[in-house]
Design a binder for these strands. Structure first.
Length: 263
DNA sequence: ACCTGGTTTCGTCATTGAGA
DNA sequence: TCTCAATGACGAAACCAGGT
């Protein structure tokens, strides 16, 4: 899931390619697209509190990163936002369509200008992929967190483990200290083995740590995945609106053409 | 109230790719 | 080569809606 999502942009990267990435460039390239629209609204996003409605949430480790904040804009029904793309064959002149040009912030991975630095296709001093990774995933390691918490002492003996119940057997317990052996084993396949000796105790501790980390990683991964899907759904809605507007426009142009023809 | 099939959530394992 | 974070796959448990 390395694919990046850009609002109305092209999806790049080796990950799951944006299934909708080509939707905005499917218009015939031969004839310039004249839309009955009025104004172009250029919007530079302020660094204010984010809208609660935004699908793309800032300040979280997210698949979809924003430079700072994202604002949602409520438009009256029937209006459509076109995110400006220099290469687009769609041009606006007058009418009810509005174009948003979102000025990219230096660190933003979200590009609405038809270009993105979210993958290898972008040349630069540093690997964009690396930058992306650092931005998205760098956080204090769990080891560091555990150290900060004071020693990473993870208990390996569950409550009641000294009883010989449910396949859990006590062999022996030796003296305290760091090298004190935890001497238990389980006959259940899925249970962990607790075998005497500091080295194996260390192995057990490492395993617990690994499981803890992976648990957290899985949670985070699922959160990102949900966010990604949300964003895709959002894009579907945007593109559907766009499609509707284009159909309407085509209709009116046809009517206009027929009128002029009969005159 | 109980059953059942579908969905969601969570933990774990295996694998992969990047960085040291 | 080793380590580690990310993620797909899988199974188990929880949850929910509809039927009886």
């Amino acid at each position: 899931m390395d694919g990046m999502v850009e609002e109305n942009g092209t999806s790049t990267g080796a990950g799951p390619a944006d299934p909708l990435g080509s939707a905005s460039s499917s218009a015939p390239a031969s004839a310039p697209h004249v839309v009955a629209v009025t104004s172009i609204v250029q919007l530079t996003l302020p660094t204010q509190a984010p809208s609660a409605q935004s699908v793309i949430q800032p300040n979280q480790q997210s698949v979809i990163q924003t430079a700072s904040n994202i604002q949602s804009v409520q438009l009256p029904k029937g209006n459509v936002i076109l995110v400006s793309k220099p290469s687009s064959v769609i041009h606006t002149t007058q009418g009810t369509l509005q174009t948003l040009q979102i000025k990219p912030e230096p660190n933003s991975l979200v590009s609405t200008q038809g270009q993105s630095c979210s993958d290898d296709s972008c040349s630069g001093d540093e690997s964009p992929k690396r930058k992306y990774r650092e931005m998205l995933t760098r956080r204090p390691s769990y080891r560091k967190i555990l150290n900060d918490l004071g020693g990473a002492e993870i208990a390996v003996i569950p409550a009641g483990a000294l009883q010989t119940e449910s396949g859990l057997h006590t062999l022996a317990v030796s003296g305290g200290g760091a090298g004190g052996a935890i001497v238990q084993y389980s006959t259940n396949q899925d249970e962990h083995f607790y075998v005497p000796g500091p080295m194996l105790e260390d192995q057990t501790r490492k395993r617990e740590l690994r499981l803890l980390k992976n648990r957290e990683a899985a949670r985070e991964c699922r959160r990102k995945k949900k966010e990604y899907i949300k964003c895709l759904e959002n894009r579907v809605a945007v593109l559907e609106n766009q499609n509707k507007a284009l159909i309407e426009e085509l209709k009116s142009l046809k009517e206009l053409y027929c009128q002029q023809k009969t005159e």
